[in-house]
Amino acid sequence: MSEPRPGVKTLGIKLPDALHAQFTLVAQLDRISLADAALRAVELYVATKRQEEDFAARATAALEEIEREAAARRGAIEGLFGETPDKPEAPKPTSRRKSATSESE
Rank of each mutant, 00 (worst) to 15 (best):
T60P: 09
L63F: 06
A41S: 03
A47T: 04
D54M: 07
E69I: 08
A21F: 00
S33L: 00
D36K: 08
A70R: 02
A59V: 14
E52T: 04
P4A: 08
E89G: 09
I32G: 11
A38W: 04
R5K: 03
E83G: 01
E43V: 14
P16S: 00
E65H: 09
S95V: 03
E89V: 09
L11G: 01
G82E: 01
D36R: 09
R73G: 06
A18Q: 07
L25I: 01
L63I: 15
D86C: 02
I32Y: 03
R50Y: 04
V42Q: 00
A90D: 10
P85T: 12
L44D: 01
F55R: 06
V46I: 11
T60V: 04
L15N: 07
F23L: 00
P91G: 04
A61Y: 02
A57Y: 05
E65M: 11
A62E: 10
L80A: 10
E53T: 13
A56W: 13
R73V: 07
A56E: 13
E103T: 13
K98C: 10
A56C: 15
E69R: 14
H20D: 00
E105C: 14
A21L: 02
F23Q: 02
D36I: 04
T84L: 14
F23Y: 00
L19T: 04
K92V: 12
L44F: 08
R97I: 08
A27M: 03
P4V: 04
K98P: 08
T101R: 15
T60W: 07
E43L: 08
E53K: 13
A62R: 06
A57P: 02
S102A: 13
E78H: 15
A27I: 01
E78C: 15
G75D: 15
P88T: 09
